[in-house]
Amino acid sequence: MSSAENRGREVKHKMREGKSNAQARKVRKYNEKSDETSHVDLAPMVDIAFLLLTFFMLTTSFAKPNVFQMGLPEKNDGSGKSTPVNPKFVLTIQISKTGAVFMHRGLEGPNNEPQRIKFEDVRKQVANYRKAVMDDPENAKKSDIVTVVKIDRETKYDTMIETLNEIFDGGVTKWATVELKADESEKLAALEKK
């Protein structure tokens, strides 16, 4: 259908079918074009492409979860290896059932009751104590403080992570977590009520 004669015949044919002259011309024009360039309709492909694009955009998660790395605790029955430490340089943090934080330095005693501290102050307090120990003339070897974190068995994991996070931010490098013994737990609960 490339000759002008053919085209003319086609227009006439369309007109005979009841199409207006202009309509017939349009049909002719269209046919002519598709013959010359073999035009492909890209719209469905675009549809599919965007559909897949949307799918991958929605399923992608760029932010991989973070991890908080720590050494694993030893069992609290004396079976683990022990390292002698100067009790003066030990900081004990106790976390109660409800997540209240108590802190005391050195050995616990009648004059050294655990003090309740606000969660927001944990980092500052730990950092202060660490600095004090490092500057202590007795601490000739500049050994770091040892932080013992005693946690009640019913405490939420969330509280544990958040407190440990604060302690690490306070600069602590030597530390251990233990579960509070039943009597310690009771004592702490009583202290919390005070």
Binding site: E154, K156, E179
Partner: peptide
């Protein structure tokens, strides 16, 4: 672990 997990469960697993 879930944030609401109890410490003793997590501790047991860590041990």
């Amino acid at each position: 672990a879930d944030k609401n997990a109890k410490f003793y469960v997590v501790n047991e697993i860590m041990l």
